[in-house]
Computed example of a mutant assay.
Amino acid sequence: MAVLSVKGLCKKYKAFELKNVSFELRRGTITGFIGRNGAGKTTTLKALLHFIHPDSGEIRFFGQDIAEHELAVKQKLGFVSGGADYYPMKKLKAITDVTKRFYGEWDDGVYRRYMKLFGLDETKTPKQLSEGMKVKYSLTLALSHHAELLIFDEPTSGLDPVSRDELLDIFLKLVEREGVTLLFSTHITADLEKCADDILYIKNGEISADMPLDDFIAEYRVARFAGGVPNDGRLLGVKRERRGCSALMRAEDLPAEGAEVSDATLEEIMVHLEKE
């Protein structure tokens, strides 16, 4: 049974439409959710968490329909956002005391362990925390009620490289040691290359790719041309660079005459495909 199964999810607005979004999350994996601004990531996440109601489609967590079993499902979910806002002048202890009342499986021992691990002080207020520490506090709350699925919305945005790397290490340990499943939405594709097992790529409201990350990256190469780009239908997303031009190619379509070919990063793949 999939941790999360989404089938035929649709939501229509005046200027945007989420079209037939379908995917599944494997237990004990990290899935990277990517797409440019406005592609549908936030709308999808809001629908998953029942913050908005889709026009059609099915969303099942742990085999249960979110529309019918919202309270039970959310006992097993943890949502962590890079832009988490709490009452800025309330002490963390007060925020925790309110939060814990909503969860039947709240574990004070786990809470204390992560507060100590992350170096968090209950007597401080959110206003006194750095952005990285706010994310760690959100993560502590999510883990303290034994969440089986963590949904992250840009958790590393605004963090310095060292803090981002520390969080990614925590994510990997959660998966390896506790079997937690993660859905990780981010624009920082380099983070996903460090930790993700699978990739979910949304473009113009539709899922464009849903597969293991390594398989997705292996599909493509970057071809760089010192001069003009030849008229070749195999080239994807041609763009100018400081010295010449570059394009994406499927590995199966190589070789490319007159091009310097290299492996593609996730960011390069996304940038070129968005020009298609």
Rank of each mutant, 00 (worst) to 15 (best):
T96I: 10
D65S: 12
G82V: 00
D65V: 04
M115D: 00
G57R: 06
Y111M: 11
D97W: 07
H69L: 03
F102H: 03
R101G: 07
R113I: 01
Q64P: 00
D97M: 09
R113D: 07
D97K: 08
K93D: 03
G104W: 01
G104Q: 12
M115H: 05
T99R: 10
V80Q: 03
Q64S: 15
G57Q: 01
G83I: 06
R101E: 13
F102Y: 04
L77A: 06
R60F: 04
I66H: 02
S56E: 02
K93G: 05
K91H: 07
P88I: 04
V73R: 11
R60I: 09
K91M: 11
L92Q: 09
Y86D: 13
Y103T: 05
D85M: 10
G104H: 08
V80W: 01
K93P: 02
Y111W: 11
F102P: 01
Y114I: 09
K91G: 13
H69C: 11
F102A: 01
A67R: 08
S56D: 03
G109N: 08
L92M: 11
R113T: 06
K74M: 13
R60Q: 15
D85N: 13
F61V: 08
D65T: 06
Y103F: 10
D97Y: 03
F102G: 03
W106K: 07
V110T: 03
V98M: 10
D65M: 08
E105V: 10
S81C: 15
G78I: 11
V73S: 13
I95T: 06
L92H: 03
L71Y: 13
T96R: 12
M89Q: 02
G83Q: 14
Y86N: 13
R60W: 01
G82Y: 05
Y86I: 12
V80I: 15
A84G: 07
Y87W: 08
G63A: 04
A94C: 02
E105G: 04
K90W: 12
Q75A: 10
I59R: 14
G104A: 08
R60G: 06
R113P: 00
T99P: 02
E68V: 09
W106M: 05
K76P: 00
G78M: 12
D97G: 09
D107A: 04
R112Q: 12
M115K: 05
F62T: 14
L77Y: 00
T99G: 03
V98T: 10
P88Q: 09
G57H: 03
Q64T: 05
V98N: 00
S56K: 05
M115R: 05
R60S: 14
K91W: 00
M115Y: 10
E105F: 07
D108V: 05
F62R: 15
Y114R: 09
Y87P: 04
K100L: 10
A72I: 13
G57C: 03
M89K: 13
G82R: 00
L77D: 02
G57K: 07
D108W: 11
F61Q: 14
M89N: 06
G104Y: 00
H69S: 14
L71S: 14
R101W: 07
E70F: 09
Q75N: 05
L71H: 15
